[in-house]
Design a protein around this nucleic acid. Structure first.
Lengths: 108, 108
DNA sequence: CAACAATACTTTACTTTTGAAAGTAGTAAC
DNA sequence: GTTACTACTTTCAAAAGTAAAGTATTGTTG
């Protein structure tokens, strides 16, 4: 059975899986905000333009489940929660930066 | 007024604009399918896993409006329509390939 | 002591977007 | 005249997203 065709279609499915993880409307913006270090929930709310609380919670949970961010809770009052990129998440920095450059050249 | 802060927030908004263009669920998969040359509408339907007609039409229109693909109609019966990447669209190839590599290493 | 503030979410009600399936237009072959 | 072919369009239900208000905990303020 044609190797090339099967490989290509495998690649296509893999790409969709990948986009399922970081292809949403908000993921990359959140990752981008985390490039310069840990951020608290409320900081992220301010740093990601137009996102709402519910979506930020949802995306962060999803990203945590996918090993892109780490959530660390401190038992303070009021509560403190810090989000950080994992190594896996940090590796997206050059890619998102390239995407940004592409956009600056062609979109803006 | 703080230069660094303004630049950063400008970048964030730009990133969101960019993601508005190619950050949807389907755009990158369609672009990926177009990397190896022009494709007809029906070919794209087959090449992009799980997409439906309505979404493919919508995304292609959007991408055409954003100068990422070119739509060429031939007055045949039944009709033939070819979609091709513009230069702007082609420039995404290395970026999407990097994303794919990232995914292979960390998602799959 | 009661009201208020602060953070990190949850919940609810509503709007928008997406998806599946069926339909349309135009012509040519049978 | 029925079927086939391509590239859409339409319809309607389901899923996802948004805005705004609510919850839990405890420390400070009046």
């Amino acid at each position: 059975m044609g190797d090339k065709k099967n490989k290509k279609s495998g690649e296509r499915c893999a790409l969709q899986e990948i986009l399922g993880v970081i292809g949403g409307k908000w993921s990359m913006s959140i990752i981008y905000a985390l490039f310069d270090g840990k951020k608290r929930f409320s900081e992220l709310e301010r740093l990601v333009p137009n996102i709402n609380t519910r979506m930020l919670v949802k995306e962060l949970k999803n990203m945590e489940a996918n090993g892109i961010v780490v959530r660390k809770v401190f038992a303070t009052v009021p509560p403190t929660v810090e989000y950080t990129l994992t190594t896996k998440g940090k590796k997206l920095e050059p890619i998102i930066n390239e995407l940004y450059k592409w956009g600056v050249e062609y979109v803006g």
